[in-house]
Amino acid sequence: MTGRDTAPLDAPLDALAALGRAAIATVRGTGRITLFGLEGMSHFFRPPWYGRLFWHSLVEIGYYSLPVVALTAVFTGMVLALQAATGLSRFNAESAIANLVVLSMTRELGPVLAGLMVAGRVGAAMAAELGTMRVTDQIDALSTLQTDPMKYLVAPRLAGGLVALPILVLIGDILGVLGGFVIGALKLGFNPGVYLANTVNFMQTADVVSGLVKAAVFGLLVALMGCYHGYNSRGGAQGVGAATTSAVVSASVLILAFDYVLTELFFAR
């Protein structure tokens, strides 16, 4: 075969090879992240435990994210009520506004929006902190001081994300419904008692529980992405910056993907 004979095949083969490389890299990356997460979570069950660091993570992820999650939830609930009023009035179904708000907030918008907000605020901070520790040898220093960095740095953050986000989402759900109530009662002219009764009567335990389970998964994903990208960052300030970006982007995409998967699991008939 001459070079001229093979030339027409080169471009499609190159494209196929690039596709193969990308697929292998994706599978390899997914495997690495999974093993990293499993190793981090295995320390939940193996002493010693760092209670003070777990508490610190809870405060950092939960308490300090409360204002941004609360504001997001309140305004989302208000907007939902307004949009629902516009849409449902075309079918003379305004009475379903309260139902729509509570269903949307508890099942979807509460966990997803809180997850995205926390990914931006906390995931980035985790990646930056661990990335800086990596490039300044602080993680190596931990190892030389008889301390497993996965146990000391990663496990408390994963546990913090797992526990803090459901609490945040529960508060966000309440505030979101309250936002819808304010618009319903003050702007749309609903009787406050009837609006609240509609909300309570329509809401089911499964709606809230599914949202909280989603929140726990999203919290874990945000912490996992922050820790993974920070822990494995390389190359000084630029590497830490790249780790921060990767942590936020990957956590956001995974939250949306897992939201679909979990919704299928919970509600698909």
Binding site: D137, Q138, A141, L145, Q146, T147
Partner: peptide, 29 residues
């Protein structure tokens, strides 16, 4: 024990906790 080139002190801990870190880890182990 290791002395790193740039010190590698834990910047989230005060100096005394940096110094006592190995002692506390040893006790925990």
């Amino acid at each position: 024990g290791m002395l790193f080139q740039n010190g590698a002190l834990f910047d989230s801990l005060p100096v005394w906790e940096n110094v006592a870190f190995g002692l506390l880890a040893q006790a925990r182990r």
